[in-house]
Amino acid sequence: MTGSTTTMTMIEAIQNAHDIAMQRDERVVVYGEDVGFFGGVFRCTAGLQEKYGPQRCFDAPINESGIVGTAIGMAAYGLLPCIEIQFSDYVYPAYDQIVSEAARLRHRSGGDFTCPLVIRMPVGGGIFGGQTHSQSPEAVFTHVSGLKTVMPSNPYDAKGLLIASIEDPDPVIFLEPKRLYNGPFDGHYEKPVVPWRDHDSGTVPQDYYTVPLGKAAVRREGAALTILAYGTMVYVAEAATADTGIDAEIIDLRSLLPLDLDTITASVAKTGRCVVVHEATRTSGFGAELSALVQEECFYHLEAPVTRVTGWDTPYPHAQEWDYFPSPERLGRAMRDVMEAV
């Protein structure tokens, strides 16, 4: 990596990734609800319409199926649409377009038509968004063949992964933990947010770079226990590790599909213990897949059952948000249980 760096929030990093991708390739078009003139309700597309014109960055009607459906047509034409769904909770009207169309086009046409498309959406809670602004729907995408699903946990990864996703020849679901947009969440909600400018991961190169899809990052090396996390939960894992003093190895998956299974199995083979943490509901969640894979691949290395710490199988609550959200305390208890198992 060459060139200068600067500090960016995750929002600025995502905006910057759009800017660089649009600058480098005129086929990149960006649209969604409030995305054009206003620059998105979270400001992730701020300034793009002014810079590239309304032909390449524009407002869309409030119709998610139409946003994704038209983007599939654009991708089939030869453009590279990078579209925003305002909240992941709003994506369901577009689910048919994503599952039956975007994900299947290359396969069903024998490669005659393809769908290079990025669908961005903010996910997760921690902002008192209630049940329609807080969900984490990653598992409804990882379950679909033909899709790639990624979730960055910091500005550096957000920029590099988004550019890589826009360049990817297949549809990518790009999930942005909105709790991390403005500053890293240290896991304890009652403590003040650390702004990204004061955080190591807020330092971002100004120029083009990519973070490849399918590569996890080891956020903390450790010998006692492996924590598999992504998005906001990376910071919960760091807090729980600090609070418990357990020498955990924290793996930030970054890309759920394709999944970096090699990094996971190497870590669990070393530690012999594994806790999976995610914010989404538990049953049939992505943690179930991770747990099954670890069991299948690392069974003879395991000293304790693989344990999941997740959101509860309830709608995401409003007033009780922090009782739903997997806290460092809950994760810490699970880590101690796993350490104490024979």
Binding site: V29, G66, T70, M74
Partner: peptide, 9 residues
Amino acid sequence: PQAVGWAMA
């Protein structure tokens, strides 16, 4: 909608 998107493109 895909036809519309293709035409928009």
